[in-house]
Design a protein around this nucleic acid. Structure first.
Length: 274
DNA sequence: CGTCGCTCCTGGATGC
DNA sequence: TGCATCCAGGAGCGAC
């Protein structure tokens, strides 16, 4: 599932490949991902537009087009943006096709939770999914003191769901929340108010170290994630707990446990994490 | 407003 | 072997 390292990988690749390209034609095979526009409105905005640049905020991809419009793309669990030769065979679950010169960008999504919305570029900051976002997980203004202060406003619940709350911190999801907590030696169920200053600092450090490390490997291909060329991310072998239920902890050999927390899988070492 | 359960969806895994 | 059921999960929504 694409989190910051995966979405940033896609952003970089798109920037390299399609920046400056004109979208000559758009084909909507399923209108479901177009959550705030009709097919006609979408087509009118996109066709003939040039891709000016590709940005990211949290897990959201933003494609700025000429003529003052932007596409806001959320891949959710299984969304893919694929860069393919125009005549490449069409895969099932391809919902929107943007034709460029001799290539196409294809929005593919098996579970259909992802979406593409259209905004006037000037209205983007007020888009509901952007407006309430917390600080960028790897942003330079997200310093330890900011994390500490944020935690003081949300003291009652367990730490892990909070790390995944995009309105708290933008960019961390299920995989890297588990990994950051393993790094910190803190169990995902720990109530925020019980965390020591040292533990908070370690969680912060975990986030700040693991995200860029994963980005270097073009992310983690858990679930169906691939980059725009269809390549898997290569960070999975370096994950310490996510997807390793029953395997021995690298540090102490205790089997990694998986529990359900707020309806989501949470993985941790019962010995190394307190 | 914070917290929390429910919901969307598909196909691979699991059970009988 | 085949069919039914379960399960994964980001984030919006409503309930409290």
């Amino acid at each position: 599932m694409p989190e910051m390292p995966e979405v940033e990988t896609i952003r970089r690749e798109l920037e390299e490949k399609v920046k400056g390209e004109e979208i000559t034609k758009v084909e909507v095979r399923s209108a479901k991902p177009l959550k705030n526009a009709t097919v006609e409105e979408f087509t009118d905005v996109v066709e003939g537009a040039t891709i000016e640049d590709v940005k990211r905020r949290g897990k959201i991809l933003i494609i700025n087009l000429s003529a003052g419009y932007s596409l806001l793309i959320h891949l959710k669990l299984t969304g893919r943006i694929l860069y393919q030769i125009a005549n490449a065979p069409m895969e099932k679950h391809t919902h929107v096709i943007f034709s460029l010169d001799d290539h196409q960008l294809r929005f593919w999504d098996q579970r259909q939770f992802g979406y593409i919305k259209v905004f006037k570029t000037e209205d983007l900051p007020n888009a509901p999914e952007v407006k309430e976002l917390g600080p960028e997980a790897m942003g330079e203004d997200f310093i330890l003191e900011v994390f500490q202060k944020l935690l003081q406003t949300r003291k009652r619940g367990p730490i892990k769901p909070l790390l995944m709350d995009q309105n708290f911190i933008a960019g961390v999801g299920n995989v890297y929340a588990d990994e950051a907590l393993y790094y910190a030696g803190v169990q995902p169920t720990r109530i925020v108010s019980s965390l020591s200053r040292g533990e908070i600092a370690k969680i912060y450090e975990g986030i700040r170290r693991i995200l860029p490390a994963a980005l270097e490997y073009r992310g983690s291909s858990v679930d169906l994630y691939v980059d725009i060329y269809g390549r898997q991310g290569e960070y999975v072998p370096y994950l310490k707990v996510y997807g390793r239920e029953g395997e021995p902890c690298e540090r102490c050999g205790t089997p990694i446990r998986k529990i359900t927390l707020r309806g989501r899988g949470a993985h941790f070492c019962p010995k190394c994490q307190k």
